[in-house]
Amino acid sequence: MATTLAASGTGPLSWGRSLRVLVTLGLRLAFQGKRALFVSLFLAAPVVLAIALRYLIPNVPRALASSDEMIVNLSLMAYAQVLVPFVCLLFGTSVVSEEWDDKTLTYLFTRPVRKSAVVVGKGIGMWLVSVALIAISFAITAIVIGSKSLPSDFQKHPMLVLQLLGILCLATLPYCALFVFLGTVLRRPLIPGLVIIFGLEKFLAWIPASVQQLAPFHYLRALLLPFADVSRLVRDIERDVLRLTVQPTPTAAIVWLLGFTLVFGALAGWVVSKREYLLTKE
């Protein structure tokens, strides 16, 4: 960090230039250490699962084993529910809270850049890495699944994969913003982050009431479910919940997801610019 942001002239760097430098920093930090390797190991799990489904488990009924069915199933159950939020939690919270915990935040904030630019720039860098890793994992999974499909299946497959990939990349936006924000507020955001992903959010998303609208997963699900045969994807009780509630249209879902991103991103920038971070041990 210290070498990248050397002051050039007087006054703070322009937003554009600081952003460029900080995005590069975010990208570099994301690949430094074992973080990216660690995330890659988790992202390899769907690939292993795809290999198991395609080559190792015999007698899977044909109707259930079509490429489309499998890839949608994996997108919803593995990527949207677990991996996307998980990867974003790891990268998003590291933007501020890791520097805070390691007591290196002072060095970051003494550079001639706006504090909010630090969060936005590093956040974008981390987000790009998250998207890249998820996209690589998803592409490999799709190739494995598509490698043994019927010719009729295979023709539709690439288009479907691209659409699903687009949705998953879109999903990384609100989650990354949320966890960057959480990292600006809490010194150790891991447990609260996990509670949000695997507790609060899923709880809200499956309550048949308007509180569903507070969960990004609600919109992500609304974008993914049209690709799937709901009767085979979700449990009976979950199907009842889906029947009882109005699902947002794809456009509304995209707008909401982008809205979450803007709100959490703006909150993160605002908190960092206003807050005095104490580096003493809590």
């Binding site: 988790f42 699962l49 198991a52 899977v60 529910q81 677990v82 991996l83 998980f86 085979r232």
Partner: peptide, 25 residues
């Protein structure tokens, strides 16, 4: 990392169970 590995593994195995159940019936 220890916490994330532990919880991530638990949740991933749960997702794997759900996917395998969904696909194989």
């Amino acid at each position: 990392f220890a916490g994330l590995t532990f919880f991530g593994t638990i949740m991933l195995t749960a997702a794997a169970g759900e996917i395998l159940h969904g696909v194989t019936g």
